[in-house]
Each structure stands twice: as structure tokens, then as C-alpha cells.
Design a protein around this nucleic acid. Structure first.
Length: 278
DNA sequence: CAGAATACCTGCGGGC
DNA sequence: TGCCCGCAGGTATTCT
């Protein structure tokens, strides 16, 4: 469900509810997420104050007085603020209660998400320490992308979705950014020109910022922490528009499989400028 | 080492 | 109506 803009939207919505709030109770109904939820989670969290929320890629960090809760929403995860009186629904796996009428509820049908406690620096956690740079940071430049892509033959779409290169870009925004930058998704990363790298980086930043501004993208069922959908959906140019006319040249958009992910693009606007893979 | 395949899950829509 | 198939916003791990 969530890529970087959706996680950012969720985090911004949670901040006023969670920061400086004391955790009073924790209920774990299902501990089989991507990794088992620690049986000690409640002991770690109860009577802890949430000091600060932050985000690294698609990971959400809740910094407590004595450690950090690392959360990931996987493909189908949701985090919502609800009233304590709301009965748990199917796939409501974890509840975190506060002193007021609110609780933080984690729901995840596919259970690809994760809830991990660490008492140490979360950025040194093995899941976070090897992540690539943040796409919205000033360090993410065309020059960085060009250097990273040196001698890499993977398709550029797979490359920008590689969280160890740049983190937070998923299937939706990768497709959209490549369309904006007019780059064919299968172009081998290493053969992009410097100009193309600069254009792609600008496209990625633009699309992520616009999506955050719109509260994220709702394809099927994304909702933010207050239960509202994202409004960037109506601005998608290629994702979910297979067979429909290209918004620039009117040609029908093409779908292809790339790295096990479906990819939509315009074969005319996203021209092959160099040799493709296979 | 890079790149590709696999694994983890449930839900939904389409075709028959 | 019901069953089977393929697909879905992610990514660590295993393989070649």
C-alpha cells in the first residue's frame, strides 16, 4: 500500500496524536508479521513516552525514552488513530493505548509489515543501516544517481526501486517518474546520460513532493491515520492506466513485466535511446 | 559481486 | 453461485 508519500502522510497525521503521549497498554492479537513481534513488546512500551516521530524511507520510527519502535506497513498495512470504544476488526493485529480516548491501531491483512523494538540507535539497526539516501534530501542529485548507476545493467526502473540505492520509491512513483523524465523503464541504469540522470532525479523529487502535498495516492484502499484517502490518484499519468491514451501523445499505454512488477509506460514518449536489456 | 528468483500473506476481480 | 487463476502499493533472503 504505502510508498514514501503515504508513509510521510501517515506520520504527519500521527504526530499531533502521539508525540509526548504516554503509552498505557499494548495488545498484540497477531504476532506473525514479516518478523515475529517481540513477546516483550508490551513490557518495552508501557509507561514509555513517545518523544518524536520520524521516517527513514518507508520505515516509521517512534522514538521513546528508552528505545525506538520501528514500524513498516509492507504492502497492505494501516496505522489509524481510533477511539478506544471501537471494537477490533479483522486483521487489527496490534493496539497501542494512551491515557486519553485514543488508541493507535495497526491493521495489515497480508502481514508483510513489521513492528520491531530496538533499544539502540535505530539507524544502526540492520534493516536501516544499509538503506540508500532519502530521495528528497539535497544529497540525491543527478551526479549521485550517475555514480551509483555506473556499470549497472539492471533496468532503471528496478534500479530506482532498489532501497539500497535510494529509499522510498515503489512501483507507482517509479513508473510516474520515468514517464515524467521520458525515460524507457528498461533502459540499463549504467547507460543513462548525465542529463537523463538529472531529469530523472528532478522527476522523482517533483512527483514525491506533489504526492505528499495531495496526501498520498489511493489505488485500492490507502487511508491515512485519520481514515481519509489520498488525492494524488487523479494525477497519475501511467500507473493503473494500461491501454488508456497517453496524456501527451494519445497512444495507448503499454504494460510489461519488469523484475516481477508490472510496469506501464508510453512507448513513444519514453523513447529507447540506447540498447535495452534482453 | 550483480542480478534474478523466491519467499512471506490475504483479498479481490475476472473468466469459466 | 462458486471455484481457480492472476494480480496487488514491499523487500529481505536465497539462488545462479
Amino acid at each position: 500500500m504505502p510508498e514514501l508519500p503515504e508513509v510521510e502522510t501517515i506520520m504527519q497525521g500521527l504526530i499531533p496524536h502521539l508525540e509526548n503521549n504516554l503509552i498505557m497498554d499494548v495488545i498484540v492479537r497477531q504476532d506473525k508479521l514479516r518478523w515475529p513481534v517481540s513477546p516483550m513488546l508490551k513490557q518495552h512500551l508501557v509507561q514509555q513516552k513517545i518523544m518524536q516521530l520520524s521516517r527513514r524511507g518507508k520505515y516509521l520510527l517512534l522514538q521513546m525514552t528508552n528505545g525506538t519502535l520501528i514500524m513498516h506497513l509492507g504492502m497492505s498495512g494501516r496505522l489509524q488513530i481510533q477511539n478506544k470504544a471501537t471494537p477490533p476488526a479483522r486483521h487489527d493485529h496490534v493496539d497501542i493505548f494512551f491515557g486519553d480516548v485514543c488508541l493507535l491501531r495497526y491493521n495489515d491483512p497480508r502481514r508483510f509489515g513489521a513492528i520491531i523494538w530496538t533499544a539502540n540507535d535505530p539507524l544502526q539497526h540492520h534493516l536501516l543501516c544499509s538503506l540508500g539516501i532519502e530521495p528528497l534530501s539535497d544529497d540525491f542529485t543527478g551526479e549521485y544517481l550517475k555514480n551509483q548507476a555506473q556499470n549497472r545493467r539492471v533496468a532503471i526502473k528496478s534500479f530506482i526501486m532498489n532501497s539500497h540505492v535510494v529509499t522510498g520509491i515503489g512501483n507507482i512513483y517509479a513508473a510516474e517518474a520515468l514517464f515524467l523524465a521520458k525515460i524507457h523503464p528498461m533502459t540499463p541504469a549504467g547507460v543513462l546520460t548525465e542529463v537523463q540522470c538529472v531529469q530523472l532525479v528532478h522527476a522523482i523529487k517533483d512527483i514525491l513532493k506533489a504526492a505528499i502535498h495531495q496526501g498520498g495516492t489511493t489505488i485500492k484502499d490507502f487511508i491515512n491515520s485519520d481514515g481519509a484517502p489520498g488525492y494524488f490518484t487523479q494525477q497519475l499519468c501511467v500507473y493503473g492506466r494500461s491501454g488508456k491514451p497517453c496524456l501527451v501523445c494519445q497512444a495507448p499505454l503499454i504494460t510489461m513485466q519488469l523484475g516481477q512488477r508490472s510496469t506501464v509506460f508510453c512507448e513513444f514518449c519514453q523513447r529507447v535511446k540506447v540498447g535495452l536489456i534482453g
